[in-house]
Simulated scan of single mutants.
Amino acid sequence: MILPVPDTGPVLVIAPHPDDEVLGVGGTIARLSRAGREVHVCIATRGRVERFGQEQVDTVRREARAAHDILGVEHTHWLDHEAAALDTEAHGDLNRSLADLVKRIGAQVLFVPHVGDIHLDHQLVFLSAMVAARPAQQQYPAAIFAYETLSETNWNAPYLTPPFVPNVFVDISETLDTKLAAFSAFASQVRPSPAERSISALSALATLRGATVHRHAAEAFVAIRQCY
């Protein structure tokens, strides 16, 4: 099965918080890296020490590094905006930092959070990613896909906010175990079933998305732009 992305050029997965990238794109990241593609991950925010404590902040960063090693991520970029506080800073700051990163690595493919996610950080990161990818510059991403994040994408108000209606599915039958291992590396974030951020829930979603397209497991995306 051919991946629905341009054949060449760096891939950038933009995550509002560490573990969003694994929940939404982990199996696809593993597939791309196994195929020899250069995959970068951008974590837009960092937990505030006064809220989470330095030890927890450091733990999550170590967990992210371990998870990304499992997936085969080329490089992780930390923008260090304040988590759960993006609405308190000038929106242009986030626009600028994402635009600089997209330009610096020459990203040809973007995976971004869904604009309808319940977390405001997700919505603002989506908007800034779209600003960074505007096709009004000499070089810009040829393809953009929005991903779903358990406990964010599916917890917003149905019919009142933009729904997640996928139109692209990536077969992750051979990389689902890798995705689950990467999420397990986020030990501080994993919850027991039936919590949505549990190994069983993540596996169940992959099975459901796969069954939709007659595959054992899949990740689902909304294609925002494809130009290649």
Rank of each mutant, 00 (worst) to 15 (best):
2 I>K: 12
5 V>R: 01
8 T>Q: 15
8 T>D: 15
9 G>R: 03
17 H>R: 04
19 D>P: 05
19 D>C: 09
22 V>F: 03
22 V>K: 03
23 L>S: 02
27 G>L: 15
30 A>M: 07
32 L>I: 08
36 G>H: 07
38 E>C: 09
42 C>S: 13
43 I>K: 04
45 T>G: 07
47 G>T: 07
48 R>L: 14
49 V>P: 00
50 E>G: 00
51 R>G: 00
52 F>Y: 15
56 Q>N: 10
58 D>M: 11
63 E>F: 01
68 H>C: 14
68 H>V: 00
68 H>M: 11
71 L>E: 12
73 V>P: 10
75 H>Y: 14
75 H>Q: 15
77 H>L: 13
78 W>D: 11
82 E>P: 15
82 E>V: 13
83 A>P: 00
83 A>F: 10
85 A>S: 12
86 L>Q: 04
97 S>M: 01
99 A>D: 14
105 I>K: 01
106 G>C: 02
106 G>M: 06
107 A>T: 02
110 L>T: 00
111 F>N: 09
111 F>L: 05
112 V>A: 08
114 H>P: 04
117 D>V: 01
117 D>P: 06
117 D>N: 07
120 L>Y: 14
121 D>R: 01
121 D>Y: 06
122 H>G: 03
122 H>A: 03
122 H>L: 02
123 Q>I: 12
126 F>T: 00
129 A>D: 10
129 A>N: 06
130 M>N: 06
132 A>K: 03
134 R>C: 03
136 A>L: 07
137 Q>W: 08
137 Q>P: 00
137 Q>C: 01
138 Q>S: 05
140 Y>V: 03
140 Y>P: 01
140 Y>Q: 09
142 A>R: 06
143 A>T: 13
143 A>E: 10
144 I>A: 03
146 A>T: 05
147 Y>I: 05
151 S>A: 07
153 T>A: 11
154 N>R: 02
155 W>I: 12
157 A>V: 15
159 Y>W: 12
160 L>E: 14
160 L>C: 08
161 T>A: 14
161 T>S: 13
162 P>Y: 09
162 P>T: 11
164 F>K: 03
165 V>F: 04
165 V>I: 09
167 N>T: 05
170 V>W: 10
170 V>E: 14
171 D>E: 11
176 L>Y: 01
176 L>P: 01
178 T>E: 14
179 K>T: 04
180 L>K: 06
182 A>L: 12
183 F>D: 08
188 S>E: 14
189 Q>D: 08
190 V>Y: 11
192 P>D: 13
193 S>N: 06
194 P>Y: 03
198 S>E: 08
198 S>D: 10
199 I>L: 15
201 A>C: 07
202 L>S: 05
202 L>E: 12
203 S>K: 04
204 A>G: 04
205 L>P: 00
206 A>P: 01
207 T>E: 12
208 L>S: 06
208 L>K: 05
209 R>L: 07
210 G>E: 15
220 A>P: 09
221 F>I: 09
222 V>W: 05
223 A>W: 00
226 Q>C: 06
227 C>D: 14
227 C>A: 06
227 C>T: 06
228 Y>V: 07
